[in-house]
Design a binder for these strands. Structure first.
Lengths: 194, 194
DNA sequence: CCAATTTCTTAACCTACATCAAGTGCCGCC
DNA sequence: GGCGGCACTTGATGTAGGTTAAGAAATTGG
C-alpha cells in the first residue's frame, strides 16, 4: 500500500504517533502520471514535493543548445522536486517527466510548512533529507570534475542498481554527461576490455 | 565585533531573544587560522561547522592524479564544513585551508544538535542554510554540464564579486574546473574580444 | 632589500569527447 | 503485418581544454 511506503520512508529518520501519521497523510494528494507526461515543466513554479510510490520519474534541464541534462532519477521510495523553484517560488528550471506510468504522493509547499510548525519532527526530517541531497549533489559535482565518463558510469551503476537495464541508455548517457553516441562506443570498449 | 556578524547572519532567517543569543554564543569557539594552515584535512572526521568572521577559507578535494578541485570559498559571513563528513562522521574528503589569516567561530556538531532540541528555530535555520547550499550545488553541477569555461567564469564573478581580484587566479581556475594555463589563455582571449 | 618560491604567461602538441552522417534493428500502432 | 519512428551503432572529422616545458613577473619571508 502506497501510504505504508511513505510512512516507512519517514520512519528512517523520525518516529510518528498514530495521530501524527493521520494528520500527515491527510495532507497528501495522490496522482498518476502516464509515461512521457510531465509532473512539472520549465518555467512553471514548483508547488509540490513528490514522493514516488510506483514507476519512475526523471528531472532534467535543457541547455541553450537544446541538450538535455538529467539531474536525477526518482524510482519508487524517492522524493523529487525542483528545489530551486520550490524554495524561491520563482519559475523553475527543470522538467520532471515520467519514464513509465508512475504514481506519486504530492505534498504541497503550504502543507509542508504547516507540518513544520504543527509537528517539528518534520523540520528535522526534511533537514536530514536535504542534507543527504546536498552530499549527493556535491559528490556528483566532484565526480564530474575529476572522473572520466567510464568512472562516472560505474558510480551511476552503484547509485541506481535497479535502473541500469531498465532505462533507455540515452537517459543514462545524459545523466553521466556524455552523448548517446559516445556512451555507445564507450560501452563496447568496456565489454572488449573484460 | 565578530559575534554581531554571526548574530546578524542568523537574523536573516530566525529571530532570537536575548537569552537565546547568549545560549548560542556560549556554544561558539573562536579560532584563528594562519595563511596556508588547515582547519580540516583529508581523512579527518569533521566535527565543526565554521563561520568565517574575517579572512577567507577554501574547501577542496584532491583527485587521484593529484589535481585540486576547489568546492567552495568562504569569505567573511559564510559558513563552511565538509558536509559529507560532518553528517556521516566518517573520514572526510575535503581539505579546508586558509587563503589568508582567518578568524572563525566553531560550532561543534554536538552543540549544534543540542541547539536543535533546546531552540527548534535552529533546526529551521540550518534547514534553510542547507537548502540554499543544495540549490547552489545543483546549479554548479548544471553549469559544469552545460556551460563553457568562459561562461562559468562569468558566473563565478557574479557569485563571489569580492574575491575576483583578491584571489590567486589559479584558485579561480580550479573553482571553475580548468587548468591555470588554460585559464590564463582564456582571459587574454576575453580581453582581446572586448 | 634580496633570494626563494610561487604565480602567471606563452607556445607546441595531445586527448577525451562532440558532431555529423549514414545505416541497422526493433517496437508500437493503425 | 507493414511502416513510421525511435533507440542504438559505427565511422570520419572537429574542438575545448589538457599536458609539458620554459621563461617572466610577482609575492613572501627573512
Amino acid at each position: 500500500m502506497p501510504l505504508d511506503l511513505i510512512l516507512n520512508n519517514l520512519e528512517k529518520h523520525i518516529h510518528l504517533t498514530r495521530e501524527e501519521q493521520e494528520l500527515f497523510t491527510a495532507y497528501l494528494q495522490p496522482k498518476k502520471i502516464k509515461r512521457k507526461q510531465f509532473l512539472l515543466t520549465y518555467g512553471e513554479v514548483c508547488k509540490y514535493s513528490a514522493f514516488v510510490t510506483a514507476g519512475c520519474l526523471r528531472g532534467y534541464t535543457v541547455d541553450k543548445s537544446g541538450i538535455e541534462h538529467v539531474l536525477s532519477f526518482a524510482p519508487a521510495d524517492w522524493w523529487i522536486a525542483d528545489m530551486y523553484s520550490l524554495i524561491s517560488q520563482k519559475p523553475g528550471i527543470q522538467n520532471i517527466e515520467a519514464l513509465e506510468d508512475t504514481d506519486v504522493l504530492l505534498l504541497s509547499k503550504a502543507n509542508q510548512e504547516k507540518l513544520y510548525t504543527q509537528i517539528p519532527k518534520f523540520e528535522h526530517f526534511f533537514r536530514i533529507l536535504t542534507e543527504n541531497s546536498l552530499v549527493a549533489s556535491q559528490q556528483r559535482l566532484i565526480d564530474s570534475l575529476s572522473l572520466t565518463a567510464e568512472e562516472r558510469y560505474n558510480n551511476f551503476c552503484k547509485r541506481y542498481p535497479t535502473l541500469i537495464d531498465h532505462l533507455p541508455q540515452k537517459q543514462i548517457a545524459s545523466y553521466i554527461g556524455v552523448t548517446p553516441e559516445f556512451f555507445s562506443r564507450m560501452k563496447s570498449v568496456m565489454v572488449r576490455k573484460k
